[in-house]
Write a protein that binds this DNA or RNA. Structure first.
Lengths: 360, 360
DNA sequence: CTGTTAGCGCCTTCAC
DNA sequence: GTGAAGGCGCTAACAG
């Protein structure tokens, strides 16, 4: 298929310029001419060359969405919302952006690589979803990259990631999740129910979200007069998947058989913990309460329904998409904090008076 | 950022051609010169313009991956594998393809739209993942589009979708899942355990995978002497998510209180069914057996562990990726059938002798 | 090994 | 309203 604009022009017996004008619809063209051109396009099955167009017009219709784990619905939901907001409305016709998701596997190297690739393509916008590795080296490398993109005219939006260091000021619009506040309220909920020995299954070490959620938890524990050493002792790290939650729950139980509650840093970890407890013959929430974070769709639907913190993922994604398209007013200071809402459900309850439960 | 190749050339005091040669590394350049050029690139923070390069070299480094639902791990796992196979090896250096996933929401219109957008970008390859809508009109529209892409030099790979009609012969390499065979073996497993009244929760109507899995199920039922009318009566349609499975299970129970087994067209539906049964006080598998399809990671991990059909999603995705890159020999006839493996686990067991169970 | 010369396919001032 | 000409930034033959 080597049919070019010139071929269409010849076929329609007009100049290339006219064809271009018809295709882009941003210039007056006589109705008859336009019809002739469009027919030629049909007949020749012409499809514009995006790269030539982008080069000539110095404009790109590529929008990149970076996610840490494409197999995790947390990212899928956000990415889907961004994508829908950007390219989703086929009815609206001309909106022809190619919104596209890239899976970094949470690997900072991959993150940089994809950003470079998108920069090569002169992407119109980049939306980076989810938390970041905490290495300072990396943070600056990524920040520099994002800054470069922004300088080149690419709109940069962070969604579910802390804002860039002040040095890079408003080069990126940010929708930060209030992980710390959400985690704090969740643990406060358990404390209010009367729990003291609360185990915590954190996310992978060295990640911003892991740290912030853990900080919120610790904050609540300390405010309630529980020692930091104890809190630390009842914290183990996992990898945000169910199997990891299963193992972590067993590890916590081994450390502290008198545990009355377990908090997972996300819903998958919490459900893994539930499974482990069930296999041990421990009932949720009668014997041990369990809580998660994120409120993915299945969480309200499992048995017992999971107490968790609801993050408005789809809404945040949609908003990120609009910001990326410049269709929404940037938040003041370029940073907006998205709150999580405590969803108290059936998996948490007051602890039993006596710890008389089987441990088999 | 308007730094161009020419700027680098000037800064390094060489010609543009030399810079290009250094950057592409496909031509001998003196070590000293190369070093000088690379330093200039660093200092100027130069990033090649992908569109100009693509235009000049008439080559693209974009690879599109189309999925039906980006929030469903089924697609996430495949897409991740494709992407990793294509752009994943940062160690290998030069492999600089931008593998990118597009979410069609299962909407045929969106599917066509994304294919067109990728065609505009002269994508190097397109991998279409998952089943298709069964409208003939659409099938031909999509087939024509794919054919056009292939004609333009884009490699087209279908993964988990039936082959194109013969008229479009080998314009697309195909990895088709053996949905029918897998479903048949699964239902045979239940029949062999002694079940007769088996409910089936199918996927959304009008989709290829839905029909094929249902066909396999019906085939097994018929071969076992069960009437088609009865099989049809015990079939309801859902939408591949857990909530839908929950509702469908209740609907089946209402139609046939003496049900002894339920098969979901995927794992999410099966787990939803489990939840519904549990809420009804019905034990799995003691009272009713439940089985799913796909074997997503969580399925082996729930309680009771789910009997299902394992599809090698990651392997298939990786293979699709290699085919898209031309790194693997195409299968004979351009079509390869990927078998599903029956995973008999704890959620299926022989039916009770007497149907003496509560129905409250 | 390096520089020079043409385009790649399209958009966009300019004239008419 | 339409056509003609130049250039977007880079690569790919050619020469040397």
């Amino acid at each position: 298929m080597a049919v070019r604009l010139a071929d269409v022009a010849a076929h329609a017996e007009v100049s290339a310029a006219t064809v271009s004008r018809v295709l882009n619809g941003n210039y007056p063209v006589a109705a008859r001419t336009r019809a002739r051109v469009l027919r030629a396009v049909e007949e020749l099955e012409y499809v514009v060359n995006g790269q030539a167009r982008a080069l000539a017009a110095s404009s790109s219709d590529l929008v990149g969405i970076l996610v840490n784990d494409i197999a995790d619905p947390f990212f899928g939901i956000i990415a889907g919302a961004v994508q829908q907001e950007i390219g989703g409305d086929p009815a609206s016709g001309a909106m022809e952006k190619l919104a596209v998701v890239c899976n970094t596997s949470g690997d900072p190297q991959q993150e940089l690589r994809y950003l470079t690739l998108l920069q090569r393509q002169r992407a119109a916008a980049v939306v980076v979803v989810g938390d970041a590795a905490e290495s300072a080296q990396h943070a600056t490398a990524v920040a520099a990259k994002l800054n470069g993109l922004a300088a080149a005219g690419t709109r940069v939006v962070l969604c579910g990631r802390p804002p860039l260091p002040a040095a890079y000021a408003p080069s990126a619009l940010t929708l930060a999740f209030d992980n710390r506040g959400g985690a704090r309220r969740l643990t406060e909920h358990l404390l209010a129910l009367g729990h003291h020995r609360i185990g915590y299954i954190a996310g992978p070490a060295g990640r911003t979200t892991t740290r912030h959620r853990l900080a919120g938890h610790s904050e609540a524990m300390s405010a309630h007069g529980l020692s930091e050493a104890q809190t630390r002792r009842l914290t183990v790290h996992g990898t945000y998947d169910r199997a990891s939650g299963y193992d972590a729950a067993l590890a916590l139980l081994a450390r502290e058989p008198a545990l009355t509650a377990v908090v997972g840093a996300n819903d998958a970890l919490a459900l893994g913990a539930c499974a482990a407890l069930r296999d041990r013959g421990i009932q949720v929430p009668v014997d041990i309460s369990v809580a998660g974070f994120d409120d993915l769709p299945f969480s309200s639907d499992v048995t017992p329904s999971l107490t968790t913190v609801r993050l408005p993922l789809a809404e945040a994604g949609a908003r990120a998409g609009r910001l990326a398209m410049g269709r929404e007013q940037p938040p003041p200071g370029a940073v907006s904090r998205v709150r999580g809402e405590l969803m108290a459900r059936a998996s948490t309850a007051p602890p039993r008076r006596k710890p008389g439960r089987k441990t088999g």
